[in-house]
Design a binder for these strands. Structure first.
Length: 270
DNA sequence: CTTGGGACCTGGCTGC
DNA sequence: TGCAGCCAGGTCCCAA
């Protein structure tokens, strides 16, 4: 499931292949994926535009175009962007064709991914909090934000309006590294733990970017390769298996209808 | 404003 | 073998 490291990998691998390319034709096979504007407007306006730059913001991909608009893509859980796939892909929702004959195929098994052509990118990504790997995300910022909050720490880590890019898998990994129980109330977390958590978030995300993302479920890179970050997971999706730190059995609990994996020995609630 | 729950979506898996 | 039901989870929407 694409979170920050997965989207960052996709961006890095598409960037050198797409900058300077001009859209020749855009084909929408599932109208549901286009959020704004209408499907016909979306296709019409994109055709002829050249890609100037490609960036990631949180879990969103932003294509800066020669015109005034920005193409924004969110892959949600099961979306993928495939560069010149050799065979016809199942679950193809959209095809972007370029002037040099290359194409990007947007596939999405669960039909939850989304495309926007936005006049103002802030309408889509304006509410996102800081990038967790950027210099403005400090332990102080994290501490201040957690103060007085009653919600479980993991719920807050998943709030994109505070930190942009952390999802279920990397929240679990960071909380194990910092030895904090996912259900611990944010205002019960000590200053020392906040520092540890801040360090863990950055470490876990940097490591996963280096491993080109985690191929749990549907994540696949533009060239068809998988990421390897999941081989380094210590708790995420490892219910019933031994904790690599202490050997205790990793447990699964439910938070906001999401699976949360944790080590009952390393991550104590009280 | 904060918090929590459900909806969206569908393939894959488990268990009866 | 067939099928019901759970699981996966990012984001939006709504209610308390």
């Amino acid at each position: 499931m694409p979170e920050l490291p997965e989207v960052e990998t996709i961006k890095s691998e598409l960037l050198p292949r797409l900058v300077g390319r001009q859209f020749s034709q855009v084909i929408i096979l599932d109208a549901k994926v286009v959020r704004h504007p209408s499907v016909s407007q979306f296709c019409q306006k994109l055709a002829g535009q050249r890609i100037g730059n490609l960036k990631r913001r949180g879990k969103y991909l932003l294509f800066y175009l020669s015109g005034a608009e920005v193409l924004i893509i969110h892959l949600m859980m099961a979306g993928a962007l495939l560069l010149n796939p050799k065979q016809t892909e199942r679950y193809t929702r959209a095809i972007f064709q370029f002037d040099d004959g290359s194409q990007i195929v947007f596939t999405d098994r669960r039909r939850l991914g989304a495309l926007w052509l936005a006049e103002n990118e802030a309408i889509v990504v304006g509410k996102l909090g800081p990038e967790p790997l950027a210099s403005d995300f400090t332990a102080q910022v994290l501490k201040k934000w957690l103060q007085g909050r009653q919600a479980p720490i993991k719920a807050l880590l998943l709030d994109q309006s505070f930190i942009a890019g952390i999802g279920n898998m990397y929240a679990d990994e960071a909380l194990l590294t910092a030895q904090i129980h996912p259900l611990k109330k944010a205002n019960n977390i000590s200053s020392k733990e906040v520092k540890s958590l801040h360090h863990a978030i950055q470490g876990v995300l940097r490591s996963a970017v280096g491993n080109k993302g985690a191929s749990i479920d549907a994540y696949i890179r533009p060239g068809g390769e998988l990421g390897t970050a999941h081989f380094s997971f210590r708790v995420a999706h490892r219910g019933g298996k031994p904790c690599p730190i202490c050997g205790s059995t990793i447990q699964r609990t439910s938070l906001r209808n999401r699976g949360s994996y944790f080590c009952p020995n390393c991550q104590k609630l009280s």
